[in-house]
Design a protein around this nucleic acid. Sequence first.
DNA 1: TGCGTCTTCGCATCGTTTGCGAATTGGCAC
DNA 2: GTGCCAATTCGCAAACGATGCGAAGACGCA
Lengths: 166, 166
Amino acid sequence: MRSPAELTEVFRAQGLKITPQRQVLFSLLHDTDQHPTAEMLFAAASDRMPGISLRTVYQTLTELTSMGEVRQLAFGSGPARFDPNGSDHHHVRCRTCGAIRDVDVGGVDRLEPLDVESLGGFEPDAVSIVFHGRCAECARASVAAAARTTTTTTTSTTPNTPTGGA
Amino acid sequence: MRSPAELTEVFRAQGLKITPQRQVLFSLLHDTDQHPTAEMLFAAASDRMPGISLRTVYQTLTELTSMGEVRQLAFGSGPARFDPNGSDHHHVRCRTCGAIRDVDVGGVDRLEPLDVESLGGFEPDAVSIVFHGRCAECARASVAAAARTTTTTTTSTTPNTPTGGA
DNA sequence: TGCGTCTTCGCATCGTTTGCGAATTGGCAC
DNA sequence: GTGCCAATTCGCAAACGATGCGAAGACGCA
Ligand SMILES: [Mn+2]
Ligand SMILES: [Mn+2]
Ligand SMILES: [Zn+2]
Ligand SMILES: [Zn+2]
């Protein structure tokens, strides 16, 4: 998204007002490379401006979204994530912990919708790609857990059914 | 997803029971090429079996999802969509009316996550692709609306601001 | 037919988001 | 600086999709 200074001009030009609440949110969004939820932004904004309302955060996010300054992302269940990164990019998401990261992807324009007839005249103008998998941390944690299970099984001779086995 | 008969065997083999509610849902899901919501399935199931509970629909969908018989999809806000199509495919979605269609896509394995270092060890094992755009119906409707506006503007000389202009 | 477990289903509840409207405030004209 | 007015904030109610819970009912097997 654009800088707080630029957004200030854009807002003014549209007859919208520059409030301290909006300034805080502009700044927070401009500075992050994450994909915060409304609640996360509310928490961060509350540090700088105690008393700011969650309602205002939602309202400002809706405005910025409709102005195209942020994208609203949805990954399955849970709250919406907001993406201030305006570059042409896609996402990877960890199945285990839900972590999201940006990823630049090559070869997108070589994707070919086959079976064009079944598209029935649909005209795509954008594409979202999400890679699903496991992040490095969760992979490490999983290996550690396996090691523990193995150790336990090897060490102990009791035929207990491991709790997390299924 | 598999046929109702096959699912019956699978369920029985796992000690799960075959109830009329499940049979109705198996059948509805097996026969559709759409991406129904829980509410939609509830409505359809209620036709064949008045009195079936929405709770049961949710429960059965959760089971089928965890068994891998259906996929749960999320497109922005709104309720989850369930996809009984087990083939390797992706989706197109109309920005205007929300309609969803399956699309087979070639070239998926030629996608290259660039900037591999910033992936920080993330290991993708699946990818979801959604094409965004406008479906044929909405494109037609939009053309028709534009024609109406043009006609009105041309015919009338009053400098009224069109209501839907912004 | 009888029993035990699995299932159904209504209701309460939860987490996220939006509707509403009174009170407040930014920005401009003077 | 002052006053005005539209834009904004914000608390609360409520919508919405989904889940937890547990009493009542039904499937499947002996
Ligand atoms: Mn992003
Ligand atoms: Mn599909
Ligand atoms: Zn993870
Ligand atoms: Zn459409």
